[in-house]
Design a protein around this nucleic acid. Structure first.
Length: 572
RNA sequence: CGGGGCGUAGCUCAGCCUGGUAGAGUACUUGCUUUGGGAGCAAGGUGCCGUUGGUUCGAAUCCAAUCGCCCCGACCA
């Protein structure tokens, strides 16, 4: 590719709207352009990178016997009625009517479409197991897209769906895909991506793993055990809480005027927040108020609470609602409440805590859950904090942030059952198959590579996904010797099947180098007068100090060798 | 959906408070000089000042509404 013909305007200044490195460089480097909030057009460099990522994904999906298919982006309501998701999914599902007034949707995922496709085509146990996948545009009407490709409304996703006759087979296959995912992320330059136990959200199903790139700019909170190195999304992470046994002392009322928060109570009493029981009240969409008792220093995990409440929506209760169930805001305890009371594990076997007295200006000492609120249901509802104890191995856990680049789910029969997909087994009986699904955010992976691989000048693309393998820069293209050499180099490398971006614009060195840095091509060849006088050109490896001179006649061999050696890093 | 910020040239932004013919840098076009980290000189083109309405002799500027974008949160993956 000649850079003079490339439509990809570079920008010297940081775009005002971008904060993430990936967002900044995708805009500055002329990779994409905003069309609407969360919706982007990709220019050639980004399209080439994405294409290479897709190729790697295809290779790995094909290795686990995936069959590539293509399902529609626009689906009729009826399909999503079958799984009840037309009603159960929120406004992030874009619904609309076609010209006849028929309800349609823009697919944000394809469980229904794929189940419908498979149930029509596969009827015998002999055809199992199988996996269908596609790489396709998805649309999710995000409440708040952000960070460029990191969280777009329209984005490219690889989604795969496998079907099985037994749980063992599904479990086996799930592991195979999990391994394939590790290979994919490693091959695109993200070997540090980690599988993390997570919540399945609107997809349903039991076991699920998210693939995260641990990064400070990630949106998800991850809990990492320093002992057994298990990773959890904080939505589902749990800790164990151990306490030295104490004798149960009788409740004792203490005066605590103007002490409504844990913080104030700590100041007043000098007691640590770990020795306090905090009350949190929620009111559900069914107008039911529930109370949660939790250790003073911990917070309620609303994903866990949502599950406890059967998936219904909830909000913090108002003061009025708190009074209604027999508590006093700021001085609440779980004792004597008229509503459902949950007690977190963190307070269940703790001793002699301080809690509210349900009386303005007073608290109680020596509160014990089992003795004083025997009706409270003991639940796991706390958000794990830095330094909490791992339930698996007893070591300390710490918090990190992650970018979710992939997510795999064992769906079980959630869709196959509701959509009445069956197969005939060896005895002639109809059975419901099991299903698992596997997603990778292609655009988000691309952005994640920049987050992981960049310097102050631009992205540093891994060779496996670089938009071009080699960049040619020439100093002084108006000189015949320079131009002839650069042109011949470009022709020779291109003819040898090497992907070359040739800056044929006769610009100053500064401009060429700055733009080349933004394009981030791994190997740069520089044709310049000084070295040319000795029949040599210079090479430089992006993002490293590696550089040197090669005789013009040896360049092709050098480049071929360099590429095959560098590609070793990204072998499957 | 809540909080905050911002819409003026391809990009970054000034002008607005105090109304009077639309600005800078950069990018772009042409020529010459340069050629190892965004070079220099000269000349040139560039705008529905987000949109609509109002106030006014006159609105980028004041008022109102609306649309859009960014950040934080909520929601979601």
């Amino acid at each position: 590719m000649r850079q003079s013909k490339l439509v990809s305007r570079k920008h010297k200044e940081k775009p005002a709207d971008a904060t993430l490195a990936s967002h900044v460089y995708l805009l500055r480097g002329g990779y994409m352009r905003l069309v609407a909030n969360g919706i982007y057009s990709l220019l050639m460099p980004a399209k080439r990178i994405q294409h290479k990522i897709e190729t790697i994904i295809r290779e790995e999906m094909d290795k686990v016997d995936g069959q590539e298919v293509m399902m529609p982006v626009v689906l009729p309501r009826e399909l999503w009625d079958e799984s009840d998701r037309w009603d159960s999914v929120g406004p992030e599902l874009l619904r609309f009517k076609d010209r006849t007034g028929h309800d349609m949707l823009l697919a944000m995922t394809h469980e229904e479409a794929c189940t419908a496709l498979a149930r029509a085509d596969v009827t015998s146990y002999r055809d199992y197991p199988f996996m269908l996948y596609q790489i396709q545009t998805k649309y999710r009407d995000e409440a708040r897209s952000r960070g460029g490709l990191m969280r777009a409304r329209e984005f490219t996703m690889k989604d795969a769906y496998s079907f099985h006759t037994t749980k063992e087979d599904m479990d086996d296959y799930y592991l195979k895909v999990k391994d394939a995912y590790y290979r994919i992320f490693s091959r695109i330059g993200l070997p540090m991506v980690q599988a993390i136990c997570a919540d399945s959200g609107m997809m349903g199903g039991k076991e699920t793993h998210e693939f995260h790139l641990l990064s400070d700019v990630g949106e998800d909170k991850i809990v990492v055990c320093d002992g057994c190195h298990t990773y959890y999304n904080s939505e589902i992470a749990s800790a164990v809480y151990q306490y030295e046994p104490e004798d149960l002392l009788p409740l004792e009322k203490i005066a605590t005027p103007n002490t409504k928060t844990i913080e104030d109570l700590v100041k007043l009493t000098g007691v640590a927040p770990q020795k306090m029981a905090k009350m949190v009240f929620y009111t559900t969409e069914k107008n039911e108020t529930v109370a949660v008792i939790i250790r003073g220093d911990l917070e309620v995990n609303e994903t866990k609470l949502g599950k406890l409440l059967g998936g219904c929506l909830f909000n913090f209760a108002t003061d009025e609602e708190v009074y209604k169930v027999g508590a006093v805001p700021g001085y609440a305890s779980g004792i004597g409440l008229t509503c459902k009371v949950y007690a977190d594990k963190s307070v269940a076997n703790a001793y002699n805590l301080i809690c509210g007295a349900n009386e303005e200006g007073f608290h109680l000492k020596n509160f014990n859950v089992s003795r004083d609120t025997p009706k409270a249901e003991i639940v796991d509802i706390a958000t794990v904090q830095d330094g909490d104890i791992c339930p698996q191995c007893g070591a300390k856990m710490h918090l990190a942030r992650g970018i979710e680049v992939g997510h795999i789910f064992k769906l079980g029969d959630k869709y196959t059952k509701s959509m009445q997909m069956t197969y005939t087994d060896e005895n002639g009986e109809d059975k419901t198959p099991l299903m698992a699904c596997y997603g990778i955010g292609v655009g988000r992976s691309l952005a994640s590579v920049i987050e992981m691989h960049h310097d102050d000048y631009g992205p540093i693309w891994p060779l496996s996904i670089a938009p071009w393998q080699v960049q040619i820069n020439a100093m002084g293209l108006d000189k015949k010797a320079i131009k002839d050499t650069a042109e011949k180099l470009y022709a020779d490398l291109t003819n040898a099947g090497i992907e070359v971006l040739y800056d044929d614009r006769n610009l100053s060195a500064g401009v060429q180098f700055a733009e080349a840095d933004l394009t981030g091509i791994p190997l740069r060849l520089i044709v310049a007068p000084k070295a040319m006088a000795e029949g040599k050109i210079e090479y430089k490896v992006r993002g490293t100090d590696e550089r040197g001179f090669i005789a013009v006649a040896d360049v092709l061999t050098f480049v071929q060798n360099w590429i095959s050696k560098e590609m070793e890093k990204y072998k499957s």
